[in-house]
Amino acid sequence: MKKPPAKVLLDLDSAVAAWRQIADQLRTLIVEGALPPGEALPPVRRLAIDLGVHFNTVAEAYRSLAAEGFLEIAHGHGARVAERENPRRATPEVAVDFRRRLRELVAGMRARGLSPRQAAGELRLMAAGLEKL
């Protein structure tokens, strides 16, 4: 069966900057394998038009992902997903950062009406999915 095309969603009401929303979603798609290494990303101009934002917003997201090692940007050839191995062991700082960001995310969602029970349910679902990897 043909895989559905990967999509990027931009929430204009979100407090998170547009470039960060784009970068976060692309990173998720790359880490989860929806965008395999070597896959070409749409040109900056194309994605900016489709999302209705300025070219610089998308360029900033691409630059940020390239700095993190997720993308390779070649002038004249656009951006491609880089060959990248995830580190086998995370440093303690990474685990601390993960916990902090998770708490912030849950707090943000609760502030928007998500009940603690719903939040716990979603986290359990995610944990079950992660344990299968």
Binding site: K7, L9, L12, A40
Partner: peptide, 11 residues
């Protein structure tokens, strides 16, 4: 609408 979607299809 507050959300916009773009498809990352291959060229």
């Amino acid at each position: 609408p507050a959300t916009r979607t773009a498809t990352l299809h291959s060229p």
